[in-house]
Design a binder for these strands. Structure first.
Lengths: 227, 227
DNA sequence: CGAATAGTTGAGGTGGCTCAAATTTTGTGG
DNA sequence: CCACAAAATTTGAGCCACCTCAACTATTCG
């Protein structure tokens, strides 16, 4: 990615805004072709269920595109929204400016497809996790978040309720499972979710982060992401 | 899709072969950029688990691309294979010929992306189903298969074990759930899985097949699939 | 300081699992 | 066409991971 490409990309971000935890960043339907970039904080792609519950499909971190599902799925699938899980700041991209930039800087388009493919990749991993017991599931989610936050991070900035909604457990059971992880010496005894022993946590979760960085290579379509 | 496009596509299929139920059509790793088209029968994309179990991610029907995951994910994710669930016939596509055809017939490339997006879409729906009770899950899977097989179909050509591996239930519990559906008058009493009351089955499953036909529209990328 | 949110703990219920075996169907070789 | 093997379906009994409901405590924030 050249400096010129990056520069062009930053110029796309026209509107900047901030959101507090719990606020909706991208609404279900009217989003249309609107594309958003998360500049700071943690958000999630989620759907509200008829019973009032919330199903979290994936978490978003700084640098992620928000609302890709709107481009990809159209209005064909259920009410997906993007919700702020911490204080978040975002930039929005004007569709017209995006079209122009895509022509001059194909790298941006590649990044979009890469992001869409990683999303699918995360979905598939979630399907695998769905059949694991609670301890392994929670452990894997924490590994995934540490991986995305960067190597230095030890604290996962999510509430237990967020974790529960993401892996499909009750908040109560999630709590008990976290306590089990603490008793095992994998998490600290603090109130927040702080990983003490990342190595053993990854063993418990059988974590392999490679699915978070898929190489998108499709023939001569010129879409090739350096590993 | 013009006749010329279709013609060009059929000329791509060089090698034709048949497989019996249980045989592996696309192997996990060495598949590489090999692309395959399912010409007849039913297959599934699945992964073998350490405990010997089989997790089915999605089913493939006549006309589907097989091994797309190899293009999209590279070798980054677990051992995915494509397995024949009935007698299957396939055609394979030579990578070089594909590259040429992609340039002359962009429709083919669009079809590839469309297929990849539908796969992701199916994954996401599976995530939703994973939190439903068994009856609703089985019912939804059957609706999905009827939808893919075409409006005239009433029989789902899968074994109960296939169904179980796809939705994450035991074969035993899947059997009991199918019997519940029979008692409800939604399935026939035959040995195979034959849907009697498609309407009520869709009610039970809260089925909405639109996620199987996402419109892939990404700005000026010229990828637009007619509804 | 009160109100809302998040975390913790307890008691009891249940959906789906495990293990085991019988029965039916399908496939295969003679 | 039959005999046997392999695979698929069915049935029963017991168990446990996770859920539900219901408090109580700790924290954050206006």
């Amino acid at each position: 990615v050249s400096a010129a490409d990056l520069d062009a990309f930053w110029k796309l971000l026209t509107v900047r805004a901030t959101f507090a935890r719990g606020e909706t960043i991208v609404s279900p339907l009217p989003s249309g072709k609107q594309l958003t970039v998360l500049l700071g904080g943690v958000a999630c792609m989620a759907a509200r269920q008829k019973n009032g519950g919330r199903q979290i499909y994936a978490f978003h971190h700084s640098g992620d595109f928000l609302g890709l599902h709107g481009l990809v799925y159209g209005e064909s699938t259920g009410q997906i929204e993007v919700e702020a899980l911490s204080g978040c700041s975002i930039g929005t991209i004007d569709p017209d400016a995006l079209e122009q930039a895509l022509q001059h800087h194909p790298v941006i388009g590649q990044a979009l497809w890469r992001a869409a493919m990683i999303e699918a990749s995360v979905f598939r991993q979630q399907l695998v996790m769905a059949r694991w017991p609670a301890l392994k599931r929670v452990a894997h989610l924490l590994c995934e978040q540490l991986y995305r936050l960067g190597s230095g991070s030890r604290v996962v900035p999510l509430s237990q309720i967020d974790v529960a909604d993401a892996i499909g457990l009750t908040a109560v059971h999630t709590n008990r499972t976290l306590q089990d992880l603490r008793k095992l010496g994998l998490l600290s005894e603090k109130r927040c979710i702080e990983v003490v022993d990342k190595e053993r946590l990854q063993d418990v979760a059988a974590f392999d982060g490679r699915y978070l960085d898929p190489a998108v290579t499709l023939s001569r379509w010129d879409i090739r992401i350096e590993g």
